[in-house]
């Protein structure tokens, strides 16, 4: 069985870095999976996303996506970060449509369809994340949470097969964050892209993930893989169920343990 995304014994040392950022990591992610990666700060979570999207190359080992070895920057992978990075000279709708200017086959038809089909598509997506009617606004007229919603739309507008999210909800308040979990879940259930979500929030990982990869402190290694099989769509109520809190608790202890070993080793 060949997985959609495979990391085979991958290590990474940044140029000039003295310690490995990532050490002998194996991952196998099936198509359409929603994978969450959790782990202490600096353990190489963002590094994994960069490796998968081909922005950096593994020092040793192999990374492949769709049975093809990743050699250079990928094409058409959706990404969103903690910082929404909207372009201030464009409207929210134009910002959301940015990937269509770049990714084929949309790029081709951009001039012809930007006012019609593509604009409608952006509006529809904005509506799903609760930003109906904000398409003509400029980024500075929106709050941080609203910008983050727009950033999700930008990552999804071209219907990517692969979506890489690096702490996209990290800077938001609890209420907005929980609301966006549910929006994110339904966006994923709509199109079933493969998602890798990096997060610090264990409840977030358990709510959204079908599988959780837990990493050790630097140099990063996979400590544990947990399948999460709560029924979908998951609700906020479910996060208070005993099974759910037990899982969160378990992960929390694991992270504390891995930190403990680091402290002892030092």
């Amino acid at each position: 069985m060949a997985a959609y995304i495979e990391l085979d014994n991958v290590s990474l040392r940044y140029p000039g870095g003295d310690v490995l950022a990532l050490d002998a990591t194996d991952m196998a992610i099936g198509e359409g999976d929603f994978v969450a990666i959790v782990g202490p700060s600096g353990c190489g979570k963002s590094t994994i996303l960069k490796l998968v999207s081909g922005l950096i190359h593994a020092t040793t080992g192999n990374v492949s996506v769709g049975q093809r070895e990743v050699r250079g920057p990928s094409k058409g992978v959706g990404m969103a970060f903690q910082n929404p990075t909207m372009l201030p000279w464009l409207t929210i709708r134009e910002n959301v449509m940015l990937p269509l200017k770049i990714v084929e086959p949309f790029r081709h038809e951009y001039a012809a369809k930007k006012k019609t089909e593509f604009a409608e598509r952006a509006e529809a997506l904005l509506k799903k994340v609760g930003l109906a009617g904000f398409g003509d606004k400029r980024p500075w007229q929106l709050s941080g949470g609203m910008l983050q919603r727009a950033s999700l739309c930008r990552a999804l507008i071209h219907e990517p097969r692969l979506l890489l999210l690096d702490e996209p909800f990290g800077a938001l308040d609890q209420f907005t964050r929980e609301e966006l979990w549910s929006i994110m879940q339904s966006l994923w259930m709509d199109g079933k892209p493969t998602v890798i979500l990096v997060t610090h929030d264990l409840r977030e990982a358990c709510y959204l993930g079908t599988r959780i990869y837990m990493m050790s402190a630097r140099p990063g290694r996979i400590l544990e893989i947990r399948d999460v099989d709560f029924a979908r769509p998951r609700t906020l109520q479910m996060t208070f169920a005993p099974e759910f809190t037990a899982l969160v608790q378990h992960l929390r202890m694991q992270i504390a343990d891995s930190r403990g070993t680091v402290v002892e080793a030092a």
Binding site: G54, P73, V77, M79, L98, K101, I102, V103, E104, A155
Partner: peptide
Amino acid sequence: EPELEDVLRALGATKRDILWN
């Protein structure tokens, strides 16, 4: 911003695309 550059490069944007947009 390096993050925005990452977003665009992961989409397959060329240097020219990034410069232009």
